[in-house]
């Protein structure tokens, strides 16, 4: 197996997987995952469906529970302890494939609910911050609309703004463009690219190999619950060491 550690070993890792295993019933979905993500690093995880890539990032904020090994996020080791889970969730934002915006709340309320309720931020401050973030994701005039009134691309950008509201140290993207029509993929990827350039630590599960090539510090290929290959993009795309990686790349790059 290729060296699964982060490309930049000089920096202190903000997320670290050490020998992580997970089973769904008898199904061994994560097999000995070792991965260290440094502060400010961008990691893209790719792989065929069912390879465990979404499960892996969902373990980072404990939407899924791992059974063996350690996951340490920002110095906090994830255990069943609710306070630790809450502390980790405060530092980790997440963007989902299906947006998961709250359909009964306006865009503004979708953004401000978390900071106001969970962090006790004053409503007016939260609204100012939300307006600023909506400008940043280029939908400044949609604050009073409801999610159902927006296009898929706009909804996903609202979801990114919502994840940024808690000023996270890391953002997890779980196939953020897979539910979008082709013409909307770019507006979302552009926002993600800007975020990456601003220095955000990101882990993205995605099939957008162009994005991976342009933005990633490390590309991880997973298959059948294992990390098969992990390398900087130049090496990953030009000289993959594993046969499985080559086969996968030949299928996703046209």
């Amino acid at each position: 197996m290729a060296n699964p550690n982060g490309s930049d070993n000089g920096r202190e890792p903000i997320i670290e997987f050490r020998g992580v295993h997970k089973w769904y019933g008898d199904f061994h979905v994560l097999r000995n995952i070792n991965l260290a993500v440094g502060r400010g690093e961008k990691v893209v995880i790719c792989g065929p469906s069912g390879s465990g890539k979404s499960t892996a990032i969902r373990c980072v904020n404990r939407l899924e529970e791992h059974q063996e090994g350690d996951i340490v996020v920002n110095g906090i080791e994830l255990t069943p302890d609710v306070r630790r889970i809450e502390a980790v969730r405060r530092t980790v934002g997440m963007v989902f494939q299906n947006f998961n915006l709250f359909p009964h709340l306006s865009v503004m309320d979708n953004l401000t609910l978390g900071p106001v309720l969970a962090q006790g931020v004053a409503k007016r401050d939260a609204e100012e911050q939300a307006a600023e973030l909506l400008r940043r994701v280029r939908i400044p005039d949609q604050a009073l609309k409801f999610p159902g009134q927006l296009s898929g691309g706009q909804q996903q950008r609202v979801a990114i703004a919502r994840a940024l509201m808690l000023r996270p140290e890391v953002i997890l993207f779980d196939e953020p463009t897979s539910a979008l029509d082709p013409e909307m993929i770019h507006e979302v990827l552009d926002v993600m690219t800007e975020l990456a350039q601003a220095g955000m630590t990101m882990i993205c599960v995605t099939h957008e190999m162009g994005f991976a090539r342009k933005v990633a510090d490390l590309v991880v290929f997973m298959d059948a619950g294992e990390i098969v290959e992990a390398a900087p993009p130049e090496q990953f795309f030009e000289a993959p060491t594993s046969e499985r990686t080559r086969l996968f790349l030949s299928q996703v790059i046209h």
Binding site: L63, M94, L113, G114
Partner: peptide, 24 residues
């Protein structure tokens, strides 16, 4: 996904129930 989104923005059980789940 609604529960998960509420989890990731840091809501506790009652906040999640009263603000996200029950209104829907």
């Amino acid at each position: 996904g609604q529960y998960e989104a509420a989890d990731t923005i840091g809501l506790n059980y009652w906040q999640k129930t009263t603000r996200i789940v029950l209104p829907q």
